[in-house]
Amino acid sequence: MLRALIVTTAGINCDQELAEAFQLVGAEPHFLHLKTLLAKPKRIEQFELIGLPGGFSYGDAVAAGRIAAQLMRRELYPAFVKAVERGVPIIAPCNGFQIAVQMGLLPGPATGEPWPSVAPQPIVALGDNQSARIIDKWVEVQVPSQTRCVWTAGLSADSHLQLLPIAHGEGRFMATSPSVVQGLESAGQIAIRYADHDNPNGSTDNIAGICDASGLVLGLMPHPERYTVWEHHPTWTRLPQSIRRSQPFGIQMFEKAAEHARSAAVL
């Protein structure tokens, strides 16, 4: 059975639903506290899937994910890079995305380039929502056809079903320069976008999530782990019964990654 690592720490609070999503696709979730991992980074080698859950790590002091990223940059960045090199799919929703960006995991080196040995300075950021307010709602999303993300590539559904919930105050995707965004675009590293009419936070180019050049590491502001059963859908009481024969969009992402992990046998 696939083993999924879920990293918890002070203020992380979306670990349970992430574990349940992994369970639904046949992986066995294991929770490890950041403290334990920092003492034994090698523990990461035991897992075939990794999740950095959402929440408010360390209260999001200074900025969302800043403190957790700082604690992880030095000791854990190399261990995560090794996992990617081993072919392990990693998902980092919401606070996990904010952490992944600041600890140097995303967007990662350009295609074909090796990972730097120490964590690089971030070139993308998740800033305050344009409204400067936390917002909880469901938004329509789109998967770019050329994405190489193992979690999202090839997924599509009717627009009223291809939704994801968001709940964040600092999710506005920004980059140091337009060329960074163009680079991500041409390398297939834009993993998921908000629909044009449904960009909730002012993100550049409607970007909701990006992946590294290998497509394994996905960071995104929406929460696919909160859309795993049909009763999660915001208007499920309006959907026909026949819909239950298919799978909700959120859990499809986990299916894809689990499939990848199984076929790649990242052991």
Binding site: H223, R226, T228, H232, P234
Partner: peptide, 18 residues
Amino acid sequence: IRQYDHEVQGRSVVKPLV
């Protein structure tokens, strides 16, 4: 309502806004 994360824990069935 929209300032509260009413979806966290992933267990919502009927949400406060429908």
